[in-house]
Amino acid sequence: MVFPMEKALDTRTDLANRVFFRLYQCANMLHKTGTRAVESEGLTTQQWAVLGALSRPQVAEGMSVGDLARYLMVSRQNLSGLISRMERDGHIASAPDPRDRRSRLVTMTESGRRVWLVEAQPKIHNYYEEALAGFSVNDITHTLHYLLKLLDNMQRIDAAQGAAEGDEPA
């Protein structure tokens, strides 16, 4: 005999598995197709994210590596190699923070700003339109709402796991 509560739990678990597998697939496809969208500018989706983060007016003076890692929700180790490659390509620069010499500030260079604003942005906007084809403004709003809700729950998990392991949250 199947009990209604067990059936509901099985259904919830099955749906959760499907949601997280689809998120995994979407993340992989974003990396693959997003990188293709901006590869002629010499960018990857990770570099696109860094330039996007640094293009915000509130960080015109730069961001510390730690703040950038927290904003992008990546480890400092993963960000380190990315920053080195982007510095080599002339898109960003890093220098000691005048307020805290132990910290480094990352800024977008003029070359990086040109690549971001003139070359990449039109292609990114086109990519968004293609990826969101068939989505109404209401669909996009609801998708964003649920992704933010999921992200908030995952950040709570990360904080609890970090506290349990003695690490700082990502």
Rank of each mutant, 00 (worst) to 15 (best):
T44A: 04
L9T: 09
W48P: 05
T33E: 15
L51R: 03
V50S: 05
L30F: 07
N28R: 03
Q46G: 14
L15S: 09
L54M: 01
L43D: 03
E41T: 00
K32Q: 14
G52H: 10
L30I: 10
T11E: 11
T11R: 15
Q47P: 10
A27P: 01
T44H: 08
T11I: 08
L51M: 10
A53S: 11
A49D: 12
D14F: 11
L51Y: 05
A37N: 01
C26V: 14
Q25T: 08
A53T: 03
T45F: 02
T13N: 12
R18M: 10
L51S: 01
V50G: 00
V59T: 08
R12W: 04
D14T: 14
P57V: 03
Q47L: 05
A8D: 06
R22K: 09
L15A: 11
Q47A: 05
R22L: 11
T33R: 02
R22P: 02
L30H: 10
R36E: 14
G52N: 11
A27W: 00
P57R: 10
R18K: 12
A37S: 02
T44Q: 07
L43T: 06
M29F: 11
H31G: 12
T11D: 12
L54V: 03
H31V: 07
G34S: 07
Q25R: 10
A16E: 06
L51Q: 04
D14L: 15
H31Y: 05
A8H: 07
R18P: 01
C26G: 06
L54P: 00
A27L: 07
G42M: 00
L23V: 09
T45K: 00
L30C: 04
H31M: 09
A37G: 02
R36S: 06
E41Y: 03
R22Q: 14
Q25H: 05
K32P: 05
S40F: 01
G42Y: 01
Y24M: 13
R12M: 13
H31F: 06
L51K: 07
G52A: 13
L15M: 12
G52W: 00
N17Q: 12
T35V: 02
A49W: 00
M29E: 13
T44Y: 04
T11S: 10
D10N: 13
A53N: 03
F21N: 13
T13D: 09
L15N: 08
E41K: 02
V50L: 04
S40L: 00
Q58S: 00
A16P: 01
N17G: 15
V19Q: 06
W48F: 15
F21R: 14
F20C: 12
T44D: 08
R56S: 06
V59G: 01
A8F: 06
W48A: 14
G42N: 02
Q46W: 03
P57S: 08
R56E: 08
N28E: 14
L9Q: 11
W48R: 15
S55R: 04
G42Q: 00
D10F: 08
Q58T: 00
F20A: 11
R56L: 10
L54E: 03
R18Q: 12
R36Q: 15
T35M: 02
L9K: 12
N28D: 11
D14R: 13
F21W: 15
A53R: 09
E41P: 05
A49V: 06
Q46M: 08
W48T: 15
G34M: 03
L23D: 11
R12A: 14
E41M: 09
L15T: 09
L30V: 13
T35Q: 01
F21T: 15
M29T: 10
V38T: 02
M29Y: 11
R18S: 14
Q46K: 15
